[in-house]
């Protein structure tokens, strides 16, 4: 067996495994979701977490920032939040008699945008544009955002009172949407028994620095994607566009998101190339929020869009 060509990226995968293990000390019983959130970070995408209040959305974001050694900022979105509160504002300095820019909370490496759907669409789109462009334009002057730049936004379920749902076009800007869900019995027991989460987070040591994270992102992006995987992804895209199950299919950006996420996931798994399983694993997080299910499709409530896609697409 020729092992020279198949040797894995041992050191980097060890680093990421340590990170996952550290995070799972705080967020109990959610290994898969933690992995997906890290995948999102490695793939240079942004992440949307949608769930009930109190399931640990904020804690997850905080822990990831701590473990990955990133500068952390939290923006609580409320209905009266204005774009200037997020981006920053120019204030007139009397002594120097000129305008001075005071950067808003968005000038940070890791941002938790809490309850994003409680803010008005105007504020939402200010954040989302900054996420997409990696830069902010205030009063005619363009300012670069720090790098790496990673946003985790949380969203309350849409049927709650006082929410402005994010439009589909904005949802597309999130690489992934992760559902956390309630912890299982065992994990919940541990949680109830254990120390305060905040103290645990403070006790965690960062496993890498900014430069290393940048290197991880580069390495993941350079992973090999074989023509067979490209075929598979295209077949998935075609299926979503042809089937009656969805109101509309996946956008090209959705396809790219799939490839990038699959690469990052394979990288975390320590593989040198992407396998169909990697695509299947990230598919629910990448595709579900982009695909509005057609009401008259007869799709069962329990089946997600991703499951339907996987079971209808063949791997060659």
């Amino acid at each position: 067996m020729d092992t020279t060509n198949i040797h894995k990226l041992d050191s980097t995968s060890a680093l990421l495994n340590t990170a996952i293990q550290q995070i799972s000390q705080v967020i109990l019983g959610k290994n898969q979701q933690i992995k997906l959130a890290l995948t999102c970070l490695i793939a240079k995408g942004h992440c949307l977490i949608e769930d009930q209040p109190g399931v640990g959305k904020t804690t997850l974001a905080h822990t990831i920032a701590q473990v990955m050694g990133l500068e952390f900022h939290r923006i609580q979105f409320t209905s009266d939040l204005l774009p200037a509160d997020v981006l920053g504002v120019s204030v007139f300095n009397r002594e120097q008699s000129k305008f001075e820019f005071h950067p808003g909370p968005i000038f940070s490496q890791f941002i938790l945008a809490d309850e994003i759907n409680r803010a008005t669409p105007k504020t939402q789109s200010a954040l989302l544009e900054a996420m997409e462009e990696h830069q902010v334009t205030v009063e005619g002057e363009t300012r670069e955002l720090p790098s790496p730049f990673f946003v985790i936004a949380t969203q309350n379920p849409l049927h709650q009172i006082g929410t402005y749902p994010l439009p589909e076009s904005q949802l597309d800007r999130f690489l992934m949407r992760i559902d956390l869900g309630y912890p299982d019995e065992e994990a919940e027991r541990q949680l109830l028994e254990g120390d305060d989460r905040r103290t645990i987070i403070k006790s965690l040591n960062p496993v890498c620095d900014k430069a290393q994270l940048f290197q991880l992102q580069q390495q993941a992006a350079s992973l090999h994607v074989s023509p067979a995987i490209l075929d598979y992804v295209q077949e998935i895209l075609n299926y979503t566009r042809q089937t009656n199950a969805f109101e509309f299919g996946l956008s090209p950006r959705g396809g790219l998101a799939m490839i990038n996420a699959a690469k990052a996931y394979a990288f975390i798994e320590g593989e040198k190339y992407v396998l169909p399983e990697h695509v299947q694993t990230i598919l629910p997080a990448v595709a579900n929020h982009r695909l509005p299910v057609h009401l008259e499709s007869g799709l069962k409530q329990t089946t997600s869009a991703a499951e339907l896609i996987i079971e209808s697409t063949s791997i060659s």
């Binding site: 067996m1 060509n5 198949i6 090999h224 190339y273």
Partner: peptide, 23 residues
Amino acid sequence: TFVFKAYRTLHYGNQINTKLTNL
């Protein structure tokens, strides 16, 4: 196990490995 491993390397990897293909 070998066949699966070789298939993954050859089909999804980025190298042409004639020796491995033959085996």
